[in-house]
């Protein structure tokens, strides 16, 4: 599974420009699903299974897009000013590298600041692509780039940009391959534009019209030196979301996930995330409402170019997802 993860995280696909990721996913799942389509917003929606006794129409969503930047201006000396796509913090940008969709690479640096301890604002940052004039700069206004950082395998822990949320894309791909039998009509949604406001999942969920929905996404941890206080840690298994700042998971869905994990002997953690939300919110609020929850993969340093996950958590997430989808569901 590591090879798949590496391929996914190293593919460039900022929000709205997920095409290359979509092609990787499509090639991976071809033959493993019953039907595939791409909707108006670029979501890849794959159906697997038909509904039998006790089955439901279930939507699962992991987003293909990653955070990135977009050029707003090229100055007379060829420096590129930019704004963000999704939640990019200036402090993770300085000295970082980006890759534009047309292949151009560049480094981010900043204007000189008033004090050595100050953090730059976004307006004070620029990308240097090695050009020396506006005319010769290979980047123009509106061009889009993703952060550039190679995949790092630390053995038990994996590090990369775009772990959020390619790790979940990998988990979903792996789960749909391992899933041999299901009573459900499953829709695996590889969604777009999550980082800019759950936009892809909003329209995909409307189209699928599910009776039950699960997002697969990353969540923060509280296990780093003087970090946020939060009872989720790497290496303790997948997290079952109870709430985040955009959604209250349906308590019946939480119960189903907890009971399934306990029955299958899969360690899990309960998650209350203060800050951020996932595709589950969009799916919960579509049409006349959908019971929704989220399986979260504990991840350190989210939205930095070095997001870290625990490989065992990842494998356990696949197991939990397979367990959840293999048997009939009764929400209670």
């Amino acid at each position: 599974m590591k090879a798949l993860i590496q391929k996914l995280v190293e593919t460039v696909g900022p929000s709205g420009y997920e095409e290359k990721v979509r092609e990787v996913v499509r090639a991976e799942i071809e033959g493993w699903v019953d039907e595939m389509k791409v909707d108006a917003l670029g979501n890849l929606i794959a159906r697997k299974g038909t509904r039998t006794e006790g089955g439901m129409r279930i939507a699962l969503s992991a987003h293909m897009d990653e955070i990135g930047v977009i050029a707003t201006h090229v100055d007379e000396n060829g420096f590129v000013r930019f704004t963000t796509i999704g939640g990019v913090s200036p402090r993770t940008c300085i000295g970082g590298r980006v890759q534009f969709l047309n292949g151009v690479r560049g480094v981010i640096y900043m204007e000189s600041l008033e004090s050595a301890t100050a953090l730059p604002t976004l307006d004070q940052l620029y990308i240097d692509v090695g050009a020396s004039s506006r005319e010769t700069c290979p980047v123009k206004v509106g061009d889009i780039a993703a952060f550039d950082r190679p995949f790092l395998d630390l053995g038990g822990r994996l590090v990369s940009k775009a772990m959020d949320d390619r790790i979940s894309v990998a988990v979903m791909i792996q789960a749909l391959k391992e899933l041999t039998a299901t009573p459900h009509e499953l829709y695996f949604i590889f969604s777009t534009q999550e980082e800019v406001g759950l936009r892809g999942a909003t329209t995909a969920a409307y189209g699928v019209d599910p009776e039950l929905a699960l997002a697969v996404d990353v969540t923060r941890t509280g296990d780093t030196p003087k970090g946020v206080k939060m009872e989720v840690a790497l290496g303790k298994g997948p997290a079952i979301k109870v709430r985040d700042s955009g959604m209250l998971s349906d308590p019946r869905v939480v119960r189903w996930m907890v009971e399934t994990a306990e029955k299958a002997g899969i360690p899990y953690q309960l998650e209350v995330l203060e800050g951020g939300t996932t595709d589950a919110r969009a799916m919960q609020l579509t049409r006349a409402g959908v019971p929704a929850g989220c399986l979260s993969i504990p991840t350190r340093y989210i939205h930095s170019p070095s997001e870290m996950v625990d490989y065992q958590d990842v494998q356990l997430s696949v197991r939990l997802l397979v367990a959840l989808l293999s048997a009939p569901v009764t929400l209670k």
Binding site: M247, L248, R281, Q284, L285, R287, A288, G289
Partner: peptide
Amino acid sequence: AQEEETLGGGLTSPFE
């Protein structure tokens, strides 16, 4: 349901 967090009931019940 869920008015205080997402206006969830207000968004979904009228759809039905």
